[in-house]
C-alpha cells in the first residue's frame, strides 16, 4: 500500500522530470515561438511544484506572471523582431564583405 507521502513525492519527481524535458526543448529549439510554448510548459510544471511544496502564495503570483504575462510579452517581441534563432549563413556572408 502506497502512502500519501510517497504519492506526493512521486508526483513531485514526475513533474520535475517534465520540467527538465521542457527546459531542454525550450533552450535547444530554433523556432522562437515554439521555444516560448515549451517555456510555458516548464512554467506549468513549476506551478505544480510550488503547489506541492505548500506555497499557495507563490503559485498565485506565478500563474499570471509565468504562464500569462511572460509568454505574451515574448510573443509581442518575437512578432516585432525576428522569429528564427541563429542563422549562421547570413553572418558568414556579411563577414566576407
Amino acid at each position: 500500500m502506497i502512502g500519501l507521502n510517497t504519492l506526493t513525492y512521486l508526483f513531485m519527481a514526475l513533474t520535475s522530470v517534465i520540467s527538465l524535458i521542457a527546459t531542454y526543448l525550450a533552450v535547444l529549439e530554433k523556432d522562437l515561438i515554439r521555444a516560448v510554448v515549451y517555456s510555458a510548459l516548464q512554467s506549468t510544471a513549476y506551478t505544480i511544484l510550488f503547489y506541492l511544496l505548500m506555497a499557495p502564495d507563490i503559485a498565485l503570483v506565478y500563474v499570471p506572471v509565468a504562464v500569462g504575462l511572460y509568454p505574451a510579452v515574448i510573443l509581442f517581441l518575437v512578432k516585432k523582431t525576428e522569429r528564427i534563432d541563429g542563422e549562421l549563413g547570413s553572418v558568414e556572408g556579411d563577414g566576407g564583405k
Binding site: D57, L60, V61, V63, P64, V65, G68, L69, A72
Partner: peptide, 25 residues
C-alpha cells in the same frame, strides 16, 4: 478579491496586481 483578502487568505498586492494586468493584455 486576491488583493483585498491578502491579509486573511493566500494572496496580496503583488499577486492581485499581476493577475489584474492579464485583463488589459
Amino acid at each position: 478579491s486576491i488583493a483585498l483578502h491578502g491579509h486573511l487568505t493566500p494572496g496580496g498586492g503583488f499577486q492581485g496586481g499581476s493577475a489584474a494586468a492579464v485583463a488589459p493584455l
